[in-house]
């Protein structure tokens, strides 16, 4: 059932993206920019069937999809599948790292705060997290770029690897990769940490007020053991948020990838939208919505695992 819902969501999102993009002004021929003659634009429109009706183009696209062909990117002059196979793993890697750091960092901070609710340290941490939560990722990314790459020159500004990566030894290559990961990962994770920490803290507070915590204490369990029990119960809201946070993470990654020239899905999508590269945008929406649907399903499963009572619902 979940799988069928997921497929329907993906299909609806991709269709909507296809139609909206077609209705937007311009096409791949106008996207070539100024200085291109109308004759050349006409040739390109004819070559790519852009003069056909929306229904014809949509039918052609669906038929290609059915045959497993995602199409040809006019802007990148290569198959869309090749564009995605380059970009998707890079984005998944970055988002996976960001999600892990956000989750672990946020849960640790939130649990720590929950155990000290109302204290001065809790209030200071909450304020700091609120400031982080309010920061737009794009702005934060630019700030980090200017401070750490431009002013201090501690870290590289852009890219997944340095320009001389191919000429380095294995150890230097690893170091180079890690150095390039720091700034985009930090930009994406800081906001995530604040989100998870806030949820975790509140969940911990609610959990600590539950009857089973009082029972555990009266039974003589040590405070760390009590907190561990409460923490497990406080996991549910965090797992739910993880599923909901995926779309936001994808959106954040779009901006962060642009600032740090991280050639992932965000970079590919922005470029494709500017170039009116319909097949790439449509395929990107399919992938994005599939990842979101998959993430939501995974969160559901994780909730079931964390709380067996939910399985019967």
């Amino acid at each position: 059932m979940r799988a069928a819902q997921g497929v329907a969501v993906v299909f609806a999102a991709a269709t909507l993206a296809f139609v909206l993009l077609q209705l937007a002004p311009g096409d791949p021929a106008t996207a070539l920019g100024e200085g291109v003659s109308p004759e050349l634009r006409a040739i390109i429109r004819a070559q790519y069937g852009l003069d056909d009706s929306l229904a014809t183009q949509y039918g052609r696209w669906i038929w290609s999809l059915v045959r497993g062909d995602l199409g040809w990117s006019r802007d990148q002059q290569r198959p869309v599948a090749a564009v995605l196979s380059d970009a998707l793993p890079r984005s998944l890697f970055l988002m996976g790292c960001a999600l892990s750091v956000s989750l672990v960092g946020g849960m640790l901070i939130g649990a720590w705060q929950g155990a000290r609710a109302g204290s001065r340290r809790d209030r200071i941490t909450s304020t700091a997290l609120l400031v982080l939560y309010s920061l737009p990722e794009f702005w934060l990314a630019l700030l980090l770029l200017v401070v750490f790459a431009h002013n201090l020159r501690w870290l590289p500004a852009t890219g997944i690897t340095g320009e001389m990566y191919a000429y380095m030894g294995a150890r230097d290559q690893l170091v180079d990769r890690l150095r390039h990961l720091v700034l985009p990962l930090t930009s994406l994770s800081l906001v995530g940490v604040s989100v998870f920490a806030r949820y975790q803290r509140n969940a911990m507070l609610e959990s600590m007020a539950q009857a089973f915590v009082r029972t555990a204490r009266t039974k003589g369990l040590t405070e760390p053991a009590v907190r561990r029990q409460a923490w497990r119960s406080a996991l549910l809201p965090v797992i739910t948020v993880t599923g909901l946070l995926l779309p936001a993470l994808i959106t954040g990654a779009v901006f962060v990838e642009r600032v740090f020239a991280w050639p992932g899905m965000g970079y590919a999508m922005i470029r494709a939208i500017e170039a009116r590269d319909y097949p790439v945008v449509s395929a990107g929406v399919i992938v994005g919505s599939a990842v979101t649907a998959f993430g939501a399903a995974l969160a559901d499963i994780a909730r079931d695992v964390a709380d067996p009572r939910l399985r019967s619902l």
């Binding site: 630019l142 770029l145 200017v146 790459a149 431009h150 020159r153 590289p156 500004a157 852009t158 890219g159 340095g162 320009e163 642009r258 600032v259 740090f260 020239a261 050639p263 970079y267 922005i270 470029r271």
Partner: peptide, 20 residues
């Protein structure tokens, strides 16, 4: 000669001024 792609103009200038 290596052409390094940085779609954001600000990032491009940072690369230049940082010596990258």
């Amino acid at each position: 000669v290596i052409w390094s792609i940085a779609p954001d103009f600000g990032s491009s200038t940072v690369k230049l001024f940082a010596g990258e």
